[in-house]
C-alpha cells in the first residue's frame, strides 16, 4: 500500500462528495456548474495520482488529464451559453423556474 497515493485518493473522494452535494442541492445554474467543476477536479487528482505513483513512465496518464481539462472548459462554455439564453428568455437562471423543461 502506498501512503501518498491513498492520501491523494481520499482528498479526491472528499472533493467528489462535496461536488455531488453541490450539484444536487443548488438551485442556481452557475452554482450547479461549480459542483460539476469540483467533481472534475477530483477526477483530475485521481488521474495525476495514478500516473505519478503507479505508472510515471506512461505519458498517456498526463494526456488524459489534458482531455479532462478540455471537458471542464467545454462544460463552462456550454453552461454559460445556456445560462445566457435562459436569462434572456426568463430573466433568471434558477433551475426551480425551469420545470417546463422536465419530460
Amino acid at each position: 500500500m502506498t501512503a501518498e497515493l491513498v492520501v491523494v485518493l481520499i482528498m479526491a473522494a472528499a472533493l467528489f462528495a462535496i461536488g455531488i452535494y453541490g450539484a444536487l442541492s443548488q438551485t442556481n445554474l452557475v452554482m450547479i456548474m461549480m459542483g460539476v467543476e469540483l467533481i472534475l477536479a477530483a477526477a483530475l487528482l485521481n488521474l495525476v495520482a495514478f500516473w505519478r505513483y503507479l505508472h510515471p513512465g506512461a505519458m498517456a496518464g498526463q494526456m488524459f488529464v489534458l482531455i479532462v481539462m478540455t471537458v471542464m472548459a467545454v462544460e463552462m462554455a456550454v453552461g454559460f451559453g445556456i445560462a445566457v439564453a435562459r436569462f434572456r428568455a426568463r430573466g433568471s437562471v434558477e433551475v426551480e423556474e425551469a420545470r417546463e423543461l422536465g419530460g
Partner: peptide
Amino acid sequence: SLKAGGTGFVLALAVILLGGWGAAV
C-alpha cells in the same frame, strides 16, 4: 444531496482502503 454525497464518499473510501494498489514507484 447530503445522502448522495455521503454515500459516494463512503463507497470511494471503501475502494481506496480495500483495493490493493501495489508498491509506489
